[in-house]
Design a protein around this nucleic acid. Structure first.
Length: 269
DNA sequence: AGTCACCTGATT
DNA sequence: AATCAGGTGACT
């Protein structure tokens, strides 16, 4: 599921579904999902609080409660958060769930258990969020700032883009797609990019994320939308060996930082 | 800066 | 059986 656009889709859906919701009870099925907190801590802190706001920071979902605490969910690779009509309905991979007073359920599902759900005070939350870099869809994200962040970095630009302490929210798919849109070789050192490419990359990041949010948020909100082809379609990610949509050369897959990077050797140089 | 470990499922 | 997976933190 989750890079920034998917987290944003989750947030928008939750906002609609949890307006005025009050948490009656919390249950942790998998203590690992709330580490370093304990199941008991999480279960006791949420009970009785109402949901005030739902926000996103990078890839993380933040549910602000009336008791001043915040449920912070990192979706990991396979996390999802959603409301079900009956709290007794328990999806196979529900790791934490909340019974709302309406008897609906708020579910944190996470097959691989690489995500985390915690309940934090503002101070604790700040510790978690402060290291994150700029929000790519905010006004603070400018070409000049991107240039400044990349300056001196000898990392491949693809790896640089996935560093959450620089720009928050890009993962393996959208980093690759942004580089394709900007026609930049993913292996280029981030610090070697000059004004023109930085400007293209900046614009591409915003464009790719915005597009993905539009299609993803739609798809999440309307049943069947995915099957109607409304989800974001990667141009290079997952397309190893297929012809590039622009130049027909074959898309390549390489390893960078232990992850697959897909790119077009013709367009991206 | 690169590799591995975390944990489990889907796909080949 | 083996490989891959939209993420990250700890460790060489």
């Amino acid at each position: 599921m989750p890079e920034l656009p998917e987290a944003e889709a989750v947030v928008r859906r939750l906002r609609r579904q949890t307006r005025g919701a009050v948490i009656a009870e919390a249950r942790v099925e998998r203590p690992r999902s709330v580490e370093p907190q304990t199941a008991e801590t999480v279960e006791s802190l949420a009970a009785g609080a109402s949901i005030k706001t739902v926000k996103r920071r990078g890839k993380q979902v933040l549910i602000r409660l009336s008791n001043g605490l915040t449920i912070r969910i990192h979706l990991g690779m396979t996390g999802d958060v959603y409301v079900v009509d009956d709290y007794r309905f328990r999806p196979v991979f529900a790791r934490v769930w909340f019974r709302l007073v309406s008897d609906r359920g708020l579910i944190f599902e996470d097959a691989r258990v690489l995500g985390h759900l915690n309940i934090y005070t503002d101070a604790e939350l700040a510790q978690v969020l402060d290291p994150l870099g700029v929000e790519p869809l905010s006004a603070e994200f400018t070409p000049a700032l991107l240039q400044q962040l990349a300056a001196g970095s000898r990392q491949p630009v693809k790896v640089f883009l996935m560093d959450q302490t620089k720009v928050a929210g890009l993962g393996n798919i959208y980093a690759a797609e942004a580089l394709f849109a900007a026609r930049i070789d993913p292996s280029r050192r981030a610090g070697s990019l000059r004004k023109t490419r930085i400007a293209r990359l900046h614009a591409a990041i915003i464009q790719i994320l915005s597009e993905a949010i539009d299609s993803t948020a739609t798809a999440y909100s309307r049943p069947g939308a995915f099957s109607e082809g409304e989800s974001f379609t990667p141009q290079v990610y997952g397309h190893e060996g297929e012809p590039c949509v622009l130049c027909r050369r074959r898309i390549r897959r390489i390893q960078q930082g232990g992850r697959s990077t897909y790119y077009c050797p013709g367009c991206q140089s």
